[in-house]
Every structure is written in C-alpha cells, then in structure tokens.
Design a binder for these strands. Sequence first.
RNA 1: GGAGAGAUGGCUGAGCGGUCGAAAGCGCCGCAUUGCUAAUGCGGUGUGGGGGUUAAACCCCACCUCGGGUUCGAAUCCCGAUCUCUCCGCCA
Length: 456
Amino acid sequence: MLDPAFIRKFPDVVRKGFADKGESGELDWYLQLDKDHRAVLTEKEQVAARQNQLSKLIGMKTGKGEDSTPERAEADGLKAALKLLEERDSVLKQDKLRIQMRMPNLAADDVPVGKTPEDNTVAATWGEKPTFDFTPKPHWEIGAGLGAFHAETAGKISGAGFSLMTGPLAQLERALWNYMLDLHTREHGYTEVAVPYMVKEHALEGCGQLPKFEPEMYRMKDDDLFLIPTAEVPLTNIHRQEILAGERLPIRYCAFSPCFRREAGAAGRDTRGLIRMHQFHKVELMVYTTPEDGDAEQMRIRTNAEAVLRNLKLPYRVLLLCTGDMSVNSRRTWDLELWAPGVGAWLEVSSISTFGDFQARRSGIRFKRAGKTEYVHTLNGSGVALPRLVIAILENYQRADGSVVVPDVLRPCGPPAALGPLRGLMKPTLRVPPCGQLRRSRPGRCVVARTRFESA
RNA sequence: GGAGAGAUGGCUGAGCGGUCGAAAGCGCCGCAUUGCUAAUGCGGUGUGGGGGUUAAACCCCACCUCGGGUUCGAAUCCCGAUCUCUCCGCCA
C-alpha cells in the first residue's frame, strides 16, 4: 500500500511508476474518490463536533438538575444527517481502500524500466558452467537412473505437478534444507522460525498476495484458510499490527516450509521433472528493518543466499528485474538463477525483494524511535528453493555412469560422497531403499539397494 | 465436539451510561540530585485521519478486539463475529 498523502501530493510520480509496471492502478478513480471522501469527512466531522458539544452540555445540565430540552431537541435533529454522512464516509473509505490494496508498489530509482524478461539486466555471474565429455542428462533421467525419482507414482497419488522422491534424492533434499538452515542461523544471524503452513486471508493481504494472486492460492473453503505459497507470508505477519522498539531492528528470520502454488497461469509449462511444482520446499529469509537500512539489508540477504550456491559450488547469475517483470509489490528484485546443464536453462532459485513500507502499511508493522512512529521496511528472499537446487546438483554433478557427486559441504548433513544407481528395484511397486546406506542384497529379499561409493 | 471465562494504551491492570483518551504501576524520554553502579524526586510520554502552518503551535473527528444496535450521549448496555484461556470428551 502506498502512502495516501504521497499519492495526493505527487499523482504524476505515481502515475509514471504505475505505467512502468504496466498498471494503471486505477489512479484517476482513486483521486476522485479521495476528493469526494475528504469533502464528506469535513462535513461529517463538523456535525459530529456539534453533537459532541451538545451531549456534554446535556450531561452537565442534567448533573446540575437543569432543563436540557432545547439541546436534546437539537441533538436529536442532528442524528439523521450524521447517520447519512457516516454511511457515505464509510462507503467512500472502503472504495478507496479496495483500490489502494490493488495498487502496485513503485519501483526504486535504480530499477531498469522495461516490460519483459528481456529487459532484465545481469547484475553478476559466478562460477563456470561445467563441461562434460558426454551429453549431460536432464535431472529426471538422472533421478530415474538412481531409482529415486518417481513421477508416475506422484501422479497416481496427487496428479500432475507433484513429485515423489525416494532414498538418495529424499535424503539429498533433506540434507540441503538442513544445511541451509544451519548456515543462515549459525553464520548469517537469522532466527529460525517454525511457521504455520495455513494462514488467514488477512495474512495474505498484508503481504500483497491477495487480492491479486487469488487464482494462485490453494484455499480450504470450509475453514477459510489458505495454504501458504511461501514462508514469507507467516514470517511477515509475525509482527502484524505491532509497534516495535526501534532498537530491536533489524529482525532477521529464516524458516523452512513447503510452498503451495496452483500455477494457474503456467499450465503446460515445465511439465517434466522438478522445475515447476504445485508443492515444493523452500528455506526463506525475511528481514524487518529501518527505511535507511533497507537497501543494505537487501544486499545482505542476497549475499546470504548466494553463499548457499557458492558453498555448493554451483554456477549462477544474478538478475536485476526490470519494472515490468518484477512483482507488483516489490520496489527492487534480484533473482538468483542456477545453471542447469541437463535442461540447458537458468533456473530461478531465489527472488530477493525489498518492499519498502508497502507491506508494512498493509499489515500495520511499525517501529518507534526518538518518540516517532514509522513504518518498517520489509524484505525477503529465498535462501533457497529446493527442487531447483536439487536439479542443479544432479545436473552439474552428474557423471557418465549415471552417478552424482555430492558437494562436500553436505557431507556432515548425512549424504554419502556420491549418489549411485540403485539396482534390483522392483517395478511397478515402489520399494524404498535405506538412505545412503551401503547394504548388500540378501537372497530372497526383493528390496535391494546398493549405493555405490566412488571417489569424486 | 460439549461447558465455561476473557479480550482496555509499548506492557501489567482499574473502570461497567455523561468533563474517560481512559486510574495506578512498569517501561521510555527530559530535568534535578547523587564518589561510580544503583537509587530517589519532579515533569512528560498512545495511534490514525481531516483542517491549519514555511515549519510548528493550534482546532476538529475517530479509536478501550472487530462489526452492528439501543441512547441526546457507549470502554461501560444489547446482538453477531474473531481470537485467547480453562475443564470434559475425542485424536496424531
């Protein structure tokens, strides 16, 4: 939500900002409503002030045992007019608010103006794309080769857009989120939060997911709850309607959570493999800070998220999104994209945004310093999203024999040095091999899991 | 699922038709005092909106969870919603 006083004072700046994002923001309608509303407000307040005067007078006279008939008569006469004005006030206020909640945020000055992803700029690249003396496979083939990726089984249970991973892949994913949480909490100063995965409507409104992205949301109709599309939602709502002590800032949270997205506009896109899922896991970073520290904190989140990718030695690039490609709520967004040689594409694993006071206004999150109350700035970024991270590891670290080297930093989290093909898995029945354990097949048993250990 | 209790300012907690935006305490800010730390005394200290001003001062309206109602007048009475807590039952 934008500052109403700012909209009123600088309508042309706002109009330009909306246009850059490819939105009208219904600005002209809003400005007209605002004008009408203030006229009604002035009138209403005058009548209310008179009524308050009379009521006090009646109270005093009654206390002294004096007659207050004329005052009562006048006050009585005011009632109908006041009620009418109050109704108009409330209607106009609601109309204004509805538009305000749909208005996009204004982009920061350093964000390139543009319409499509082609207008994004590459802010940084890191690492070298790996070279192979064989044709690198896409992750679904690698996963299937490991006997650990089961698209059909997931489809049988939940339909398209869901994944089911067993043994080494399930373990790899778990090791990754463990690793990321440890890194962010121990080295980057975030407080880990275990959040609810279902939230109320107002929580989504506060972040800006609603009303705009309602088609993207899974909703529990009977309970009027939504499945979270990201842990940003519960994290940003932790301090909803609070006035924080200034010295508490910045507050840095991280959380692991599943994320649920209907992907309503993306049907038929990225249907194979793990690239686009209705449900996926993610470690999220979220910061509340002061207006002047907002930009530095955004860079800090970026550095923290990049640390994950660097430590895993995965090639990536950083995009500064243009006005037209970034989220309507954001002031500035960097995307981290991992290189996936198997599918031959850059995959977004983190979107690092600063919202300025946009979310804070919607959610009523303020702080107090030197006797003044101000809105906080909120920021977040993934640190990072899991399925695409798994993809990048499989595809970057694959070897000709179908095995996959596991990055060193994950070793303390459980996985072996390499993930090797599992053999003897009975199909179509799913048998889950023990995680990363070297286990010899036993005669007479149908479950055989042999994970080959090979030095990298 | 059944029964009950409650929701007041940054926090704790009074008030239960009229000078109540709301006692008191804590916290916070300022001043005074004080070898240091600590303590003490005095004063101040909510939020949003509209008007006003170069900026203030100032004026007005609203806000005691939210939404309705009764009344000249509601934190206070009535109805509804939401949330929290306690007990019983059921259950991972």
